[in-house]
Structure formats: structure tokens, C-alpha cells
């Protein structure tokens, strides 16, 4: 078995005069190492200037998404062994501004999350003496969309997000759907107006890669298509039927 494996890492520092460049690092090739272990090895023993985000190393915090050999992945869940013999190319997630090295700027997502009102909207009174009833069946209606860890892989897989500057992107729309489909929520109509507007669901051309790369099987592509169907239905009923005020 090989002893070492080469990582070609995208390096960029706005402080430096030189532009972005790929730098090669040799790391031990170990069966139980994921890409993130290799990056930490570099950071701790070879080159302390390498910048990247990480935290839980168990695929739940969503920090360590990067592009590995062109595919957006969680680096904590990508074994070196599967990418042997190398070299392995590691880049920041695509379509985001790069702050430095492998660190991207995700302000756009954070702003949009607020814009789509990703929280429960109640019309009822808040009675804290008891819980709202929700059957396991009703729970399963939105559960899948609530599993999003905000890792941004789907954005990096979405060419529309790269081409259309205003597009909110897959995860945010899936999270809006998560609340729409929740039996406790009354905000569907409000969110529909946002989704039908510029930047919303109609930018999506259904490439479908967002769902393919999602590490949590959220299926944002499905969420968006369901939204389109619902949006179209709402539009037709509003305009065609005299009683169609929904």
C-alpha cells in the first residue's frame, strides 16, 4: 500500500500580491483518515498558514464543506482511501466569494434565510401549558426538509446559483418548505409571495445536482419542484376561478 498521498490545495490570501495558486502537500496515507484529518495534519505539522473551517468531524455541524476533485463534499466524511492514489485536488466551494484559502463567504445564505422567514408563524395564541398535537404522519410531511445542516454543498452544485446573482438557492427554499409543510405553521401564503418573486423558485431549472450532493438527503430539488407546482396552482386558481381566492 502507498505510504503518502498528495493533496493539491487551493491557496489564496487577499493580503498577498500573488493571486490564487495550488500548493502541493504530501501527507501520510491512512485508511481511517478523511480529508479533514489530512488538512489538520498539514495545519498542525507542515504549514500553519492554511485556513479552513471545521468543528464536529461527524457530519452534523456543516462547517467543512469543500470541493474535492471537483465535487462538493463534507471533508469529514470523505476517506482518503476512496480517492487514492491521488493527487487529490481540494478547493473552496464554488460560486461563493472566497475569503481566504478554503474559507468562503456565506453572507448571502444567511441573509436569505431571514428573508424567507424560516421560523414558525402562528396565528393562534401561544398557550404554553400544552404542546400542539402533531401525528407522526404530519411530522413526516416536513421532516426530510428539516434535516438541512446548512453545509452549502447544494449551492456549490447549483449552476443556476452561479449564473443568476439574485437566486436564493436550494437550501433556503427547502427550509421555507420545511415550515410550509409543518402542520403548526400558518405562514405558507406569506412565503409564497417571496418565492414567486424575483430570486425565488422560478429561477430553478431543475438541474437536480443539489439533491445529488446533499449529505443529509434533504432533496432540495424536490422541495423546489413541489413549490413550483403549488405556486402554479395558486396562480391559476387566483386568476381563472371567480371564487379562487384560495
Amino acid at each position: 500500500m502507498q505510504q503518502q498521498i498528495t493533496l493539491e490545495i487551493f491557496r489564496y490570501n487577499p493580503d498577498d500580491k500573488e493571486g490564487p495558486a495550488y500548493k502541493k502537500y504530501e501527507v501520510p496515507f491512512r485508511k481511517d483518515w478523511v480529508i479533514l484529518d489530512a488538512l489538520n495534519h498539514i495545519k498542525d505539522r507542515i504549514d500553519g498558514t492554511l485556513s479552513f473551517r471545521w468543528s464536529c468531524r461527524m457530519g452534523i455541524c456543516g462547517s467543512c464543506g469543500m470541493k474535492v476533485n471537483g465535487n462538493p463534499v463534507l471533508t469529514c466524511a470523505s476517506f482518503l482511501e476512496k480517492l487514492a492514489p491521488g493527487p487529490i485536488r481540494i478547493e473552496p466551494l464554488e460560486y461563493f466569494p472566497v475569503i481566504r484559502d478554503l474559507v468562503i463567504n456565506m453572507d448571502d445564505f444567511m441573509d436569505n434565510l431571514k428573508k424567507v422567514r424560516s421560523w414558525i408563524i402562528h396565528e393562534k395564541d401561544d398557550n404554553l401549558d400544552e404542546e400542539y398535537l402533531q401525528t407522526p404522519d404530519q411530522l413526516s410531511d416536513y421532516k426530510q426538509y428539516s434535516m438541512c445542516i446548512n453545509c452549502m454543498l447544494c449551492y456549490s452544485a447549483c449552476p443556476v446559483y452561479g449564473l443568476e446573482p439574485g437566486f436564493m438557492g436550494p437550501a433556503v427554499i427547502a427550509l421555507a418548505q420545511r415550515y410550509n409543510m409543518d402542520s403548526r405553521d400558518d405562514g405558507n401564503k406569506l412565503r409564497m409571495d417571496i418565492m414567486n418573486a424575483e430570486g425565488g423558485i422560478w429561477h430553478c431549472t431543475f438541474v437536480g445536482d443539489c439533491s445529488a450532493v446533499c449529505p443529509k438527503n434533504v432533496d432540495p430539488a424536490g422541495a423546489i419542484q413541489r413549490y413550483k407546482l403549488e405556486g402554479a396552482r395558486a396562480w391559476w386558481t387566483r386568476w381563472l376561478l371567480p371564487w379562487g381566492k384560495e
Partner: peptide, 8 residues
């Protein structure tokens, strides 16, 4: 094949 995504 994709229709199942939109129609649940």
C-alpha cells in the same frame, strides 16, 4: 422519472 420529485 423526475415527476415524482414534484408530485408527492
Amino acid at each position: 422519472n423526475l415527476s415524482a420529485k414534484a408530485i408527492v
